[in-house]
Every structure is written in structure tokens, then in C-alpha cells.
Design a protein around this nucleic acid. Structure first.
Lengths: 199, 199
DNA sequence: CTTGCATACATACAGCCTGTATGTTTATTG
DNA sequence: CAATAAACATACAGGCTGTATGTATGCAAG
């Protein structure tokens, strides 16, 4: 392996350039938001030129999408990594909830995935990304909890709960007391369990 | 009253100009989003000049904030108008829920209040606007349901439920089946009631 | 009623940013 | 080694934002 200069394969060049752009863009998008971050600023931080950026990405939005997708994949994989076998469906939901909060506690993720993402890419695109990464696990948990196959209404319920998770993550990111939101979320899931048991 | 030309009081001029700007801006922000709407386009639609815009509003964001605030006030007052005395706390929550969905079904509101608003103005500013308009009524409903005074955790729970309401409104605006989300929301509120009764 | 001032605009300008078009260098392939 | 394509780098055009400056009209005082 030749490590220093002289000969860099095209694949390596591409990999490094894209990585530098994604990293620099992520930092700036998190710090100042999508709208207030210019491409000149991004390429300066990444030590490349705008030519490189527009070679690898269709436009600024495309770069942002790549950042968001990488972040969604990271969240999903961190959750999956922490997925341990739970005794009851409720335990599974609770532990999944905590894993989600842990994953979303990483600096900037809440802003990228919950604030700028939906506004810039649109909710349809965001839910597409969700589906293609970790999506559906909440619906599965609900189906297990209710003991029946998913139907449109259960799908809607999963969506509503997902929105609650997101809001909790966002509130925590804004330095709300995490305990409050964690226990409120637990209350919500608990009541669901109690109700379905009482049926 | 002298209706035609010649003499328009300054107060009237201001009122009309601001109204024209707010109306035109609202339409364009809804149609193309905040970022893709330029001030030249807005003033052309409002039949004024950019000078007028920047006389009445500090900048484009300030105009957007005015649009969003007006929309939040409209939603709040429409809900309050429909607030009828309910037999039980649960009934109150359900009817409030329906009133909210009705109010949020107006074209563009979901986008303004739930998508562009949080991204452009920030969540803190949006929750400030919520507080100053209709906010708190959901927390009151929960307090009545639980039969005790609000505490931080109940506050968090109200926030989580509010997020569910918002997501439902957004989904409905994107032509999801309203029935599914309405009944899912009812399920959520119902289970809360059942659980608190069983305590 | 006119004089002075403030309000409500209108116009012009500077700076920045985005996306594209075009040029150049480096790897890869036959 | 020749040719082609990939990976950039540079230059440019258009548009948009915010500000600075100019103008006309309402308004209040004397």
C-alpha cells in the first residue's frame, strides 16, 4: 500500500472528497441551519472547491439530503445495535424508546432530522428516508403489543406516537429535562398497554 | 366617508399596505415555501414596492413571522369559537381535537405552522406564539382528565400529545385518510382515560 | 394657511450566493 | 502509449436580500 502522495485511486479521491464535504456540511448545517449556510463556506471548511461539490452533488439540497440520510442511517443502526431481546412487547417499546433518545441526543441530529429536514426536503421525502432506514419497527412493536396484524389505523397510531418521540427528542435537544419527557413517554406507552389489556 | 381618491389617512394606508403584503405573502409562502419565495415576487403580487415591504417589516423573516402569527391567531379563535361545554373531560378533549383538525384543514396552515414555521423561526419562537395564542388549553384538558394540577411531567405529556395532533393535521393535509388519524387520536385519548380511571 | 416634521413609501446600489459553462489535470483503459 | 473519462478548478450570469438615499404626502403647530 502506497500511503503518501503521488498516486491516489479515483475511488479513494471520491471517497475522501465526499467525506470531507459531508462532514463540513453537517457541522455548518447544524451550527447555522441550512438556509444560512453557503456553499462557499462549506467548501472552505472541507478544503475543496465548489467545483468538487457540484461534481459530486447535483445541488446544495442534494448535499443536504446526503447529510440527512447518513444521519438517519446512523440513528437506525445505533438503535438496532442496542436492540436486546425484551420480555414483553411493552418492554421492547420502552427500551426502543430509550435507544432512540440516546441516538437522537447526538449534537445536531434533532435539528437535521426534525427541523431542517422536513422543511427542506419535505415530509414525504423524510418519511421515505425513515422507511428505508429504521422505519416500521415502531409499527411492529405496536402490532406485538396489540396482538394483531397492522391495519391503517394502527399505522396512523404508530405515526402519532412517532411524532411524540420526535417532539421529545427535540425538547431534550433544547435542554428540556430528559426525565420528564422519558417518563411522559413511558406513561403514554403504559396507558396503551393497560387499555389493550382491559379490552 | 370619502371613499375614492384624494385623501387617505396614514393609518388607512398602513392598514391596507400591510394587509396586501400579508395576504400576498401568505399565498406565495404556502404555494412555494418560504425559501423559494422572493420579495420581488411578493410585492408584485401585493401591488406595492419593496420599499413598502421593508418599511413595514424589518426583513423577509419578519414578514413571515407576521403571517404565521396571524395564522396561529386564526386557528386559536376558530377553536375557541367551537368550544362547547362538554360533559366529561374526555369529551372536551375529543371535541377540541376535532375543532383543531377542522381549523388546521384550511389550505396552507399545516405548511405554515408545522413545516416552515419551526424551521425558519425556530421551535422556541413557535412555542412562544402557541403560548400567546391558544396554548395551554390542552394542558388544562389533561389536568381536568387527571383531576390534579399540572406538573412538569404532565406538561411534557401535553407537549407529546400536541405533537401527535400536529402530525395528524400534517398527515391529513397531505391527503391521508382523516378518519384513520381521527380514530387513532381518539384511541390515544381514550386509553389515557381508561388508564387514569384504573389508577 | 404655511411651515416644519414625520410617515410612507420609491429607487438605486452593493454584496453575496447559486448553478452552469468551460477549462485543466489526473487516473484508467485498450 | 494513446485515448477517454473522471475529478476537479475557474469564470461567469442571474437573482435575491438588505440598505442607503431620495421624494411625496399626511399631520400638527403657530
Amino acid at each position: 500500500m502506497q500511503e503518501n502522495s503521488g498516486h491516489r485511486s479515483n475511488r479513494e479521491r471520491t471517497r475522501e472528497t465526499r467525506a470531507a464535504l459531508l462532514s463540513a456540511a453537517r457541522a455548518l448545517f447544524v451550527e447555522k441551519g441550512y438556509a444560512d449556510t453557503g456553499t462557499p463556506e462549506i467548501v472552505k471548511a472541507a478544503n475543496v472547491t465548489r467545483g468538487a461539490l457540484y461534481h459530486h452533488f447535483r445541488d446544495k439540497e442534494d448535499l443536504f439530503r446526503a447529510v440527512v440520510e447518513r444521519e438517519a442511517v446512523a440513528v437506525s443502526s445505533e438503535i438496532e445495535r442496542n436492540a436486546c431481546a425484551a420480555a414483553t412487547p411493552l418492554d421492547a417499546l420502552i427500551s426502543g424508546s430509550n435507544a432512540y433518545f440516546d441516538a437522537m441526543a447526538i449534537e445536531g441530529r434533532a435539528r437535521l432530522l426534525l427541523l431542517d429536514g422536513p422543511a427542506v426536503l419535505g415530509p414525504e421525502e423524510m418519511s421515505r428516508i425513515d422507511r428505508e432506514t429504521g422505519g416500521g419497527s415502531l409499527l411492529d412493536g405496536l402490532a406485538a403489543l396489540f396482538g394483531r396484524a397492522p391495519d391503517p389505523e394502527m399505522q396512523a397510531l404508530a405515526d402519532l406516537l412517532s411524532a411524540s418521540f420526535d417532539r421529545a427528542a427535540l425538547a431534550i435537544a433544547q435542554s428540556a429535562r430528559r426525565d420528564d419527557y422519558e417518563s411522559a413517554m413511558a406513561t403514554l406507552l403504559n396507558t396503551l398497554t393497560v387499555a389493550v389489556a382491559g379490552t
